[in-house]
Simulated scan of single mutants.
Amino acid sequence: MVRFLDHLRELSASFDVLLCDVWGVIHNGVAAFPEPCEALARFRAGGGTVVLITNAPRPAASVEQQLRRLHIGSDVYDAIATSGDVTRHFIADHAGKAAFHLGPPRDQPLFDDLDVAFAAEAGEADYIICTGLFDDETETPETYRALLEDARARNLAMVCANPDLVVERGHKLIYCAGALAELYRTLGGDVTFGGKPHAPIYEQALAQAAERRGAPVARERVLAIGDSVRTDLAGANNFGVACLFVSAGIHASEVGARDNPDAAALRTLFSQASRPPLGVTRKLRW
Rank of each mutant, 00 (worst) to 15 (best):
R69D: 14
H94I: 02
D93W: 00
G84Y: 00
L70D: 03
L67H: 05
F111R: 09
Y77E: 05
P105G: 10
D85R: 07
I91K: 09
F111E: 08
A81G: 13
D107T: 08
A92V: 05
Q108P: 00
R88G: 08
D112L: 14
A81R: 07
D85M: 06
D107P: 08
F100R: 02
H71I: 01
G84T: 06
L102F: 00
P109C: 07
V76Q: 04
D93Q: 14
G96M: 09
I80Q: 05
R88I: 04
H101T: 00
K97E: 11
D93H: 09
A81L: 09
T82V: 05
I91E: 04
D75T: 14
G96D: 11
V86T: 15
I72L: 11
H101Q: 03
V76T: 12
G84M: 02
G73E: 11
D107Q: 09
R106P: 02
V86M: 13
L110D: 05
V76M: 08
F90V: 15
D75F: 03
L70V: 04
G73H: 07
D85K: 01
P105L: 12
D85S: 14
D78Q: 05
P109Y: 03
P104E: 04
G73M: 02
L110C: 14
I80G: 11
R88D: 03
A99Q: 01
A98T: 13
F111L: 10
R69F: 03
S74Q: 13
A81I: 09
F100S: 00
D112Y: 12
L110H: 09
G96I: 08
D75G: 12
Y77F: 15
R69N: 09
I91T: 06
V86G: 02
P109F: 01
H101N: 07
D112E: 15
R106D: 00
I91R: 00
D78I: 00
V86C: 15
G96P: 13
K97Y: 01
D78K: 05
F100D: 04
V76I: 12
A81C: 11
P104I: 10
D75I: 01
F90P: 07
A92S: 12
L110W: 11
R69E: 14
T87K: 00
A92N: 01
A81V: 06
F111S: 13
S83T: 07
V76G: 08
A95G: 10
Y77R: 07
L102C: 01
F90H: 15
D107M: 08
F90T: 14
L110R: 13
G96S: 10
A98V: 13
H101C: 06
T82P: 01
A81F: 06
L70K: 02
L67A: 00
S74E: 15
P104D: 02
D78E: 07
H94Y: 01
T87V: 15
R68G: 06
A98G: 05
Q108C: 03
F111I: 08
L70I: 05
R69T: 14
H101S: 02
L67I: 01
D93P: 02
D85W: 08
V76E: 04
P105D: 13
A98I: 11
G73C: 07
D93Y: 01
D93N: 15
F90E: 13
V76D: 11
P109I: 08
A81D: 06
H94W: 09
